[in-house]
Simulated assay, not measured.
Amino acid sequence: MRDEKETGIGCESAPVRFPTKIAVLLRDDLESWQRLNVTAFLVSGLGTASPEVIGEPYADADGTAYLPMFRQPVLVFEGTKETLAAAHGRALSRSLPRAVFTSDLFGTGNDRDNRAAVRAVGKDLLDLVGLATYGPRNAVDKVLKGARMHP
Rank of each mutant, 00 (worst) to 15 (best):
L96Q: 03
G89Q: 14
G10F: 05
R112L: 15
G122V: 10
C11P: 00
R71N: 15
A23R: 07
A87I: 04
S93H: 08
K5H: 15
I54A: 02
G122E: 15
A14F: 08
L144E: 01
D28G: 13
R27A: 10
L128R: 01
S50T: 11
M149K: 12
V118K: 04
G79W: 03
W33K: 09
L96D: 01
K21V: 04
W33L: 12
L46R: 00
A49W: 02
V143I: 12
P15V: 06
A147G: 08
C11F: 13
T48Y: 11
G45M: 06
H150K: 11
A91R: 00
S32K: 14
D104S: 12
L84V: 12
F77M: 06
P68N: 03
A40Q: 09
T133W: 00
E6T: 15
A132S: 15
L30D: 01
L131P: 01
P97A: 10
K21P: 03
P68Y: 04
F106Q: 05
P15W: 06
A132L: 04
T39I: 04
T48E: 14
L131I: 05
K123N: 14
A132K: 02
A99F: 01
T102G: 08
E52V: 07
A91C: 02
S13D: 14
V24H: 08
A49Y: 03
G146A: 10
R90K: 14
S103Y: 13
F41N: 09
A14H: 12
S44N: 11
